[in-house]
């Protein structure tokens, strides 16, 4: 008899203790739609299966988590609160990408830096080649036209003749 009450009591306590403001129970609303649930579930990954977003994960566990989201939405909790709840309970792996804090910033800074390094190396290469070409031009006879793509060259020629 007392067990269901027990559960309700626990949930109320849980939500009250987790809520930033103590009014969620009053902010009851109609049952949130599947779309509203999925909008949040899409941002989360299934904590037990590998690399499966929560909104399309077919396991029983995921169904329960979606119900939990629905419940929390009905309690009037915000998207950030729900996501934070999931991270606290199941770890950072439920997020679609690493949380942007502390050392994790290397996951966001390294990719653009890698590209910029590549560009820098390329730019330096060009600079060197230019210097070398200039020296060579200064020393040697006038440079012969580098006619490699004869086909293109011939085309250009013909096009010029037409004008």
């Amino acid at each position: 008899m007392s067990k269901p009450f027990h559960i309700v009591l626990f949930l109320v306590l849980l939500f009250v203790s987790l809520a930033a403001h103590p009014s969620p129970v009053l902010a009851q609303q109609a049952t949130p739609s599947d779309d509203e649930v999925n909008a949040i579930a899409r941002q989360l990954f299934c904590p037990v299966c590998e690399n499966t977003p929560l909104d399309v994960c077919p396991t029983e566990a995921c169904r329960q988590w979606r119900e939990l989201i629905r419940q929390m939405l009905a309690e009037g909790r915000s998207e950030e609160e729900i996501i934070r709840y999931f991270v606290d309970n199941y770890g950072a792996r439920v997020l679609a990408e690493p949380p942007r804090q502390g050392v994790n910033w290397i996951f966001y800074l390294v990719p653009p830096l890698a590209f910029l390094t590549g560009l820098f190396l390329l730019g330096r290469g060009f600079y060197d080649w230019r210097q070398k070409a200039r020296q060579a031009a200064a020393q040697a006879s006038p440079p012969s036209p580098a006619a490699a793509d004869e086909y293109a060259a011939r085309l250009e020629e013909e096009l010029r003749k037409r004008r």
């Binding site: 690399n51 950072a92 792996r93 679609a96 690493p98 996951f107």
Partner: peptide
């Protein structure tokens, strides 16, 4: 490659899993 190997390294160092999903 960074996205594939980072979770591996992260887990070795911290013993915690991490996800690199489509948005990243």
């Amino acid at each position: 490659a960074y996205g594939v190997f980072s979770p591996l390294v992260y887990e070795i160092v911290t013993n915690q899993k991490i996800t690199f999903g489509p948005p990243w």
